[in-house]
Write a protein that binds this DNA or RNA. Structure first.
Length: 484
RNA sequence: AGCGGGGUAGGGUAGCAUGGAGUGCCCGCCGGGCUCAUAACCCGGAGAUCGGUGGUUCAAAUCCACCUCCCGCUACCA
């Protein structure tokens, strides 16, 4: 059986999830559900990145231990994913003992390869922000975040010989064109790697809330290096199951963390002697009402509120329908309402509604010839999904919805009777049944409702063709409520 | 500054690699049809000097050069 292992980023838990987190997680969920429909052995991992100074300080301020503090945050994430109907198979937390052990073991493997050495890190440090910057990042010699003065700091540190992997990385990119996805991000990474790689400092002396560095327990492992290992610890690295799942098929990541996944992570895996994931897919960002989302502007979109207001299915639908996964796009409730009323209510909901009303008026057996089948482009839908394009697949699915609505107008079943009426109903009912399957990764609850009204059991991709009608259709409530 | 991406009807996009009538899609607008359907559905129409200038060519949204505007990334900030 074919397997499919997909991950979301392990979210840094400095706050509750916003639309960006929801977008990545919903997208990964849709892909996971799609591959399950295809009969594959799927493992869908998400989780939280919980170490680092920020969490330690936040915990101190609340008089809690860091562990207590991040426990609460991890629960918030899990709660939101439940609200959004996320079907994850694993949830990895970087503060868990299993993860710490895995991270430690990983560092030891890198060390065995001779890729770790002790050196000195030098950088510009902004004391109030507690952040290091490189020469390039400074703005007029000052902190790019707060504009205050920075201080040159030297710190003893262990390094990973990232620079030695330049050629192997470039070779890998060349021989695995899909690895850097989407294409428009590929050159960005290739050119930067071509320009040369610096070794990566992988320990922190000052940060206590982290995984102890195995070669020198007075330090902790740099959070990034450690968090990446979460993709292994999250599937129980070195267990039988993890052997069958690795390498990951897709790491879905935000474009801002593409570097770590497309450069640092494969180099680390090469060093540790492990296989490289098949695809790193960098997704785009959301603006909100045309503006960059930020707390200070106060336009942060809360997914929980959207679910409460519009339902999980409609919010999920909007997130993947409004823009291509790889592009940036704008979120507004107005745009969402337009999509709900126009595409869900008027296209899909209306198709089901008119089909079931017409069916309800007919008493005879339902059978016919597949006249609508040529409008169903399952090959195109599958091709889009294979390219990690659930947005494009939705376009194809909707062209079938439109063709079906058109079929109703052309056939005018209300004027037909007998075998011709039966034939038109057959086509519409089969179209609805197939649509229910195709839409299920995006809107699982809607698919269930539709199946119940059609009187059919959930199908798989194999059932997405016109067969004999075997359902028992009874008109029920509207699938979607129009937003006035 | 370096590297990368982009500027196509009122808005959003596809098309560009392999040049061939401004061709497609969604929203909005105008008109018509239908009456099964949540005034939903279907058909038709208006609306674009394809960011600008110059070049290559019989022919440029598409290729080349320059200009201009917007955006992203720039590694120890997760």
């Amino acid at each position: 059986m074919q397997k499919f292992y997909i991950t979301t980023p392990l979210y840094y838990v400095n706050d509750k999830p916003h639309i960006g987190h929801a977008f990545a997680t919903v997208t990964a969920d849709i892909m996971a559900r799609w591959h399950r429909l295809n009969g594959e052995k799927v493992f869908f991992l998400t989780g939280t990145d919980e170490h680092g100074e920020k969490n330690q300080k936040a915990a101190d301020a609340k008089g809690m231990t860091p562990q207590q503090y991040v426990d609460g945050l991890a629960d918030i994430y899990k709660g939101v994913w439940k609200d959004l109907n996320i079907s994850y198979d694993g949830f990895v937390r970087t503060s868990s003992p299993a993860h710490e052990e895995a991270a430690s073991r990983f560092v030891e493997l890198m060390n065995k390869s001779g890729d770790i050495y002790k050196g000195e890190y030098e950088g510009w440090y902004c004391i109030p922000d507690e952040t290091f910057f490189t020469d390039l990042q400074l703005v007029d010699g000052r902190c790019p975040d707060c504009g205050r003065e920075v201080k040159k700091v030297k710190e003893e540190s262990y390094f990973f010989k990232l620079s030695e992997y330049q050629q192997r990385l470039l070779d890998h990119y060349a021989s695995h064109p899909q690895f850097l996805s989407p294409e428009l991000r590929a050159d960005e990474i290739k050119n930067r790697v071509k320009a040369g790689l610096k070794d990566l400092s992988i320990t922190r002396a000052a940060i206590k809330w982290g995984v102890p560095f195995p070669l020198d327990k007075s330090r902790t492992v740099y959070v990034w290096v450690e968090a990446l290992v979460g993709y292994l610890s999250g599937i129980g690295w070195r267990s039988k199951e993890s052997e069958a799942l690795w390498p990951a098929d897709t790491h879905l990541v935000g474009k801002e963390i593409n570097w770590f996944h497309a450069v640092v992570w494969p180099a680390m895996l090469m060093s540790a002697g492990l296989q490289i994931p098949k695809r790193i897919f960098a997704h785009g960002w959301w603006t909100v009402d045309g503006k960059k989302m930020s707390k200070s502007v106060g336009n942060v979109v809360d997914p929980v509120e959207m679910v409460r207001k519009y339902s999980a299915d409609t919010f999920r639908y909007f997130l993947v329908r409004e823009k291509p996964i790889s592009e940036d796009g704008d979120f507004s409730e107005k745009a969402m309402i337009t999509r709900i009323n126009g595409e869900l209510v008027a296209d899909l909901g209306n198709l089901v509604s008119r089909t079931l009303t017409l069916t309800g008026r007919f008493n005879g057996p339902i059978a016919g010839r597949p006249e609508l089948e040529s409008h169903l482009r399952l090959d195109k839908i599958t091709e889009r999904m294979d390219r990690f394009d659930p947005f494009g697949a939705l376009e194809e699915i909707w062209s079938f919805v439109r063709a079906s609505n058109k079929y109703v107008n052309e056939k005018a079943p209300w004027k037909l009777e007998g075998a011709e009426l039966s034939n038109s109903l057959y086509n519409l009912l089969e179209a609805c049944r197939i649509l229910s399957i195709l839409v299920s990764p995006y809107m699982p609850e809607t698919s269930e409702k539709l199946n119940a009204q059609l009187g059919v059991s959930p199908g798989t991709l194999k059932d997405c063709r016109f067969m004999e009608w075997k359902g028992n259709a009874v008109r029920g409530e509207h699938l979607f409520r129009k937003i006035e």
